[in-house]
Design a protein around this nucleic acid. Structure first.
Ligand SMILES: [Zn+2]
Ligand SMILES: [Zn+2]
Ligand SMILES: [Zn+2]
Ligand SMILES: [Zn+2]
Lengths: 152, 152
DNA sequence: TTCAAGCTGAGAAATATTCTCACTTGAGTC
DNA sequence: GACTCAAGTGAGAATATTTCTCAGCTTGAA
């Protein structure tokens, strides 16, 4: 999302484009892996040393509300986020290096309808994720720091 | 899963069927909603007052390893589990009362193959969940304690 | 420049989960 | 039943993550 469009989106809700938010956005723009909040914070500080952890939490929550990021359900104790670029995006996640590939052709409409009919639920949404090993991690199984990324 | 089959499954791994585990299993057998660990603990204590919280955590982890329960990705701060009955089960979750309906016809094989081809990932698994309102909660939107269940 | 929300960072607080350890128990063997 | 011992336990401490609080700072508009 271009920065001016974002500024507009924030403005529409009476929100400001602040130092901290800019730093976090730069961090997200520079990676294609999912990150835990503490890691976003660490990287944001390299851009602007004054950014506080609480603000990163607040910003990630805001970005999730604006649908610019999304939880990834890796089985860690902490929350991981990945960027969203596509409108109705789902994620394919590499268990080795954290690389995230997005796709939007989830083809779940038919399943949704069938389930709704069968269960009498009003279905309001779904989450779907795939996980595995990316090409790079598959070819280099010994190293667990592919792409120079540490665990995060 | 009948109790003797479970005893056998535990035995095969050198594990025991203990008081705490039995209490947790009874709790799970008695509900069709997803539960957070603290709630499983509360209910287990009604069956056997000596059950400790740590044991419930350990038991849920064990049951997840045995594929008898599974995480549900509700957006709370704590972990929720739901029973698994079907072999390759996915969950449809009611946001109102926590009711979980299981289904296994996920029809993702084709999508999996297409994604693998396109991204060069080796795909090792997926998670998929649907959420919405069950019939009962849809008809009674004012109350948030449908089925006498409190938040958990 | 001035102003008023909106935001901020720091640290405290709340909450969830894991760990530790001395004691207990389940289940096999006699 | 009594004996054995590894597996399991409960209590509470420890750890980790996330949220809250609040006095002061910033952003964006006038
Ligand atoms: Zn990888
Ligand atoms: Zn979808
Ligand atoms: Zn319901
Ligand atoms: Zn499936």
């Amino acid at each position: 999302m271009p920065i001016n469009q974002l500024r507009q989106a924030l403005h529409d809700q009476g929100l400001k484009l602040t130092r901290s938010r800019l730093a976090v956005l730069q961090v997200l723009a520079a990676t294609s892996a999912h990150l835990k909040v503490a890691e976003v914070h660490r990287r944001a500080r390299q851009i602007d040393g004054r950014v506080g952890l609480a603000s990163v939490y607040r910003t990630m929550e805001l970005l999730a509300r604006l649908r610019l990021v999304k939880h990834v359900h890796v089985e860690h104790r902490h929350r991981h986020y990945a960027r969203i670029r596509e409108h109705h995006g789902h994620h394919l996640v590499c268990n080795g290096c954290g690389l995230v590939v997005e796709f939007s052709d989830c083809q779940l409409e038919r399943l949704t309808r069938a389930l709704a009919r069968r269960t009498k639920f009003r279905i309001e949404g779904h989450c779907m994720e795939f996980f595995g090993q990316c090409r790079e991690c598959r070819c280099r199984p010994a190293s667990n720091t592919a792409r120079g990324k540490r665990k995060s």
